[in-house]
Design a protein around this nucleic acid. Structure first.
Length: 894
RNA sequence: GCGGGCAUAGCUCAGCUGGCUAGAGCACAUGGGUCACAACCAUGGGGUCCGGGGUUCAAGUCCCUGUGCCCGCACCA
């Protein structure tokens, strides 16, 4: 490794990633190149990883997310930044608790049998054993995190940060506790925040139910509509809108609740939509969020008829013990027999489900802790408006504002055992609540009968602190000083609210600075048909399988190339193959280069210099191109244009470096142009590969490291190398223009060859090229050996435009040159005549367009002069071309 | 209801602040065992840029409108 030039023979089998990737990752770790040093005298660049769940296994979303972060970090390291990529994992409250519970269930043990302490111990044991699996998988992907700094949301330091934040917010009255109707998962037996509820459209029934008057007054009763008849048992009022002409007269009357017979009042409340249904609504404060508000406004009683398990409670009378959904049908049946069920029509409505286990959530009345979000959100909106934080792509800013502006209080308590326990204690004697950093010894009332709150905090509470808690906050650390605020956060849009918004919230509150300057939101990885990947669909592509089969570089390159701002990624194994071919191409091109480099040939500087006598057009050209690609690549990475960056390199390496430059270098490398040319050519190739490998390294680190080593470029690891510098070569534009001219001639010859179906290995005896421009004649004649080789021609005859053309020949004509291929009896002349006639027709149409444009006064007056000039030239050129085609036709007809 | 996105070749998509003959990859067709590479090379066919209006000298690009698809949030008695 690193000692000298590789044995080229070993490379002949093509690129095989497996052993190479493992070897280099180990070397990188050994050399500590990922380690961040806050005290280095360099500009900082930092990223915190979106901490994967400890229960997690690497999926394509992670692979994408971390590939992009890795690209940025590796590029920035080479660009001279001190880089911190902070890694770690999230304890993932519900998810982890569920996983461990399930594994206990296999042995027939429930967590309640174990008890809280023993259960939490089990979870820690599970975490120690399996929790680092995803870290190993990130390493396989090539992630260049500073692993020495790996953190866990429940490790000691982070737990301290969590406590401090909770206590401070409580003291500022930004955290409060209260009895509210919250989202409850009857399976997980915990409260959920609004975000943790997933709404799905379900087919339900819309029941019309008659509530008979119970006050002896006129009429039969009031009809109300409901999708949840089981909640009828908990009704404590009927409400109508105060200005509803249709129902106003009902206010103040009394009706009896079906089945229970409870007599309830008719009240008025603005919440009712008078247009909807009958305009009368049954009010169940204990089981519906809107009804809860109505209930508290009117001081209505709350009757809980459904318990925490989703089972009908004591209050449900005969229905006690029935599951809520079973009770729904049973109660509908009873209403029917009572003659109170007027109708039951099908109706689609959206129903909330637990985002973890999919159980239908239940609005449930209980005592919970909340973060008062509104006052915090104001600062956070201002931070984005002021430009301190920038979303990329920009459209996500809207999404962020919309949520922040309509934010509701965040329910942060969870009835789980795995997580950060809420630092609140209750005095059994005086009932006082004590919120404190340390476990209090006694209550203010002097007694010591204290009990800590049983609940833990929402997982997202601790992840909200991640950008500063991982760097040692609340202590004042070198890392915080050097690396906070972080440079960019890279994540998917699905956690903008869960995580991004809340990090901003906590960062602004506790660091008084934004946690990151840019938020790069990438797309979702879908299957090749654009469907979400899911286990149940069976369309999940496992990145680890892909890595095994094609290598991490192939996966990284594929994901990167498919990453376009604002577009989802449609992924298939087939696409990975395409990009794997590129790695092989790069491998073979390098192999070719190495075969032709004896020793380190040294540098030519500048590479495009005028004073280097042995540089030819294509040498200068590739130097110019490398330079332009360098500045383009730098710009694209800085702007998070990952897909464009990957494709820029792909196209450059394949279509320019391999297809043209290396081909054109062959005569020199084989010694046909003498020792000086050979040496010059070697030097150019050496330098070109050195820069190209560096530019590719952030995207495909493994193969470039291996090739770097094979070339023996020196300076150790490629990642330690400096990012190439774009140079401005004098005359660069001319070089590119000349090269394009030359390429066009070669392509034209190849086309003519194909036209007469000349087999590729056969050389064409003669091509006649007429050039308009003297300078071009010199250019072509200097490079005619090159052209002859690339296009397989024996003789290339040069003359000025207008020279007599050869008989029985086919031609390609442009304004600058005409190319003739005397074909004699090689081809079907009649067919060729038709081709020219077609071309003439096309040309006519085009010229009409241009002529029309030039005939337009407005165009002449208002368009920029260079555009008008261009059009004039095009017209002149077209006319010349037309004449030549006509002549050509004549020539063939003769 | 509020907000956002997308519509370009058979498929997946580029086309940036309007200005070259609208491009690429895959697929397809033809030819090729040429000494880096068949995981390759060369060449070719294929487009009413979703419909309709407008702005402009000029629209795939900007504006309006219609249609179709997708996503998020809220509501859903």
């Amino acid at each position: 490794m690193g000692a000298g030039r590789a044995n080229v023979g070993d490379m002949a089998k093509g690129y095989e990633p497996g052993p190479i990737e493992d070897k280099w990752y180990a070397k990188w770790m050994e050399d500590g190149i990922f380690n961040a040093d806050p005290n280095q005298n360099k500009p900082p660049f930092s990223i915190v990883i979106p901490p994967p769940n400890v229960t997690g296994s690497l999926h394509l979303g992670h692979a994408l997310d971390n590939t992009l972060q890795d690209i940025l970090c590796r590029a920035k390291r080479m660009q001279g930044f001190k880089v911190l990529w902070m890694p770690g994992t999230d304890h993932a409250g519900i998810a982890t608790q569920n996983v461990v519970e399930r594994s206990l269930m296999k042995d027939g043990i429930s967590r309640h049998e174990l008890g809280r302490e023993a259960f939490v111990e089990r979870v820690w044991a599970w975490k120690e054993e399996y929790g680092s699996r995803i870290i190993g998988q990130l390493k396989k992907l090539g992630a260049s995190c500073d692993w020495d700094r790996e953190r866990f949301t429940m490790d000691e330091g982070l737990s301290r940060a969590v406590r401090k934040v909770f206590v401070d917010l409580y003291n500022k009255d930004l955290i409060y506790r209260g009895k509210y109707l919250i989202n409850w998962c009857p399976r997980c037996l915990t409260a959920l925040s609004d975000l943790e509820v997933e709404h799905k459209e379900l087919e339900g029934k819309f029941y019309s139910v008659l509530y008979r008057f119970a006050d002896g007054g006129e009429g039969e009763g009031i009809t109300v509509m409901t999708t949840r008849p089981e909640t009828i048992l908990g009704d404590t009022a009927i409400a109508v809108h105060p200005r509803d002409e249709r129902n106003r007269h009902l206010v103040g009357r009394r009706v009896s609740v079906p089945i229970t017979g409870r007599v309830i009042p008719v009240i008025e409340d603005n919440m009712v939509d008078p247009e909807f249904g009958t305009g009368a609504v049954k009010i169940t404060p204990a089981h519906d969020p809107n009804d809860f508000l109505v209930g508290s406004r009117h001081g209505l009683e709350s009757i809980q008829v459904i318990d925490a398990h989703g089972v009908m409670s004591d209050e449900a009378g005969a229905y006690k013990g029935l599951d809520r959904l079973e009770a729904r049908d049973a109660i509908a049946d009873e209403l029917k027999t009572l003659g109170l069920l007027l109708s039951a029509d099908g109706r689609k409505h959206s129903v909330g489900h637990c985002y973890r286990c999919g159980t239908i959530i239940e609005p449930y009345l209980s005592e919970q802790w909340f973060v008062r979000a509104k006052p915090l959100a104001e600062t956070d909106i201002a931070a984005v408006k002021a430009g301190a934080i920038r979303f990329v792509p920009e459209q996500w800013t809207q999404t962020y504002y919309q949520w922040m502006e309509n934010i509701r209080d965040w329910c942060i308590s969870r009835q789980l055992w795995w997580g950060h326990r809420i630092p609140a204690w209750y005095c059994a004697d005086c009932g006082k609540v004590i919120v404190s950093l340390e476990t209090p010894a006694a209550c203010k009332c002097g007694r010591t009968n204290l009990r800590q709150d049983e609940d833990v905090l929402d997982t997202w509470f601790s992840s909200a602190l991640w950008p500063f808690s991982t760097m040692g906050w609340p202590d004042d650390t070198d890392a915080l000083r050097a690396f906070y605020p972080t440079s960019v956060l890279v994540t998917g849009f699905d956690i903008i609210f869960f995580w991004v918004a809340r990090m901003i919230m906590m960062g602004m509150e506790f660091m008084e600075r934004e946690p990151f300057r840019d938020v790069y939101i990438h797309a979702l990885v879908r299957d090749e048909h654009g469907r979400k990947m899911s286990k149940s669909r069976g369309n999940v592509i496992d990145p680890l399988v892909i890595i095994d089969k094609y290598g991490a570089d192939a996966l990284r390159l594929t994901l990167t190339a498919l990453t376009l701002q604002g577009r989802d990624i449609f992924m298939s194994e087939n696409r990975v193959e395409t990009y794997r071919f590129f790695l092989n191409k790069l491998w073979n091109a390098s192999r070719f280069a190495l075969m032709n480099l004896e020793d380190s040939p040294g540098d030519i500087a500048p590479l495009c210099g005028e004073d280097e006598p042995h540089l030819r057009l294509h040498d200068r050209w590739i130097a110019v191109r490398v330079s332009n690609v360098t500045s383009e690549m730098t710009r694209l990475l800085d702007g998070y244009f990952f897909g464009e960056a990957a494709r820029l390199m792909y196209d450059f390496v394949w279509n320019e470096l391999c297809d043209w430059y290396l081909e054109m270098s062959k005569p020199a490398l084989r010694g046909g142009e003498g020792p000086a040319r050979k040496n010059t050519s070697q030097k150019v190739i050496y330098q070109v590969f050195r820069d190209v490998l560096k530019l590719l390294h952030p995207i495909i680190p493994f193969v470039t490291e291996e090739l770097w080593d094979a070339f023996a470029f020196g300076g150790g690891i490629i990642g330690r190398g400096e990012w190439p510098v774009a140079k401005s070569y004098p005359g660069a534009e001319t070089v590119e223009y000349d090269m394009a001219f030359l390429q066009n001639i070669v392509r034209a010859i190849r086309n003519l060859r194909a036209e007469v179906k000349l087999p590729p290995q056969k050389t064409a005896p003669l091509m006649s090229l007429r050039l308009k421009d003297q300078a071009k004649t010199a250019l072509i004649s200097e490079n005619s050996d090159m052209i002859k080789m690339l296009a397989k021609v024996d003789e290339l005859e040069l003359s000025a435009l207008g020279a007599p053309k050869p008989a029985k020949s086919i031609a390609t004509v442009t304004g600058d040159w005409e190319l003739f291929f005397p074909v004699g009896s090689l081809m079907d002349v009649g067919r060729e005549i038709t081709r020219f006639e077609d071309e003439l027709k096309k040309l006519d149409a085009e010229m009409k367009k241009v002529a029309g444009k030039l005939g337009n006064e407005n165009f002449i007056a208002k368009a920029p002069p260079e555009v008008v000039e261009k059009e004039r030239a095009a017209l002149a050129e077209g006319e010349a071309r037309k004449r030549r085609i006509e002549e050509n036709l004549e020539g063939l007809r003769r």
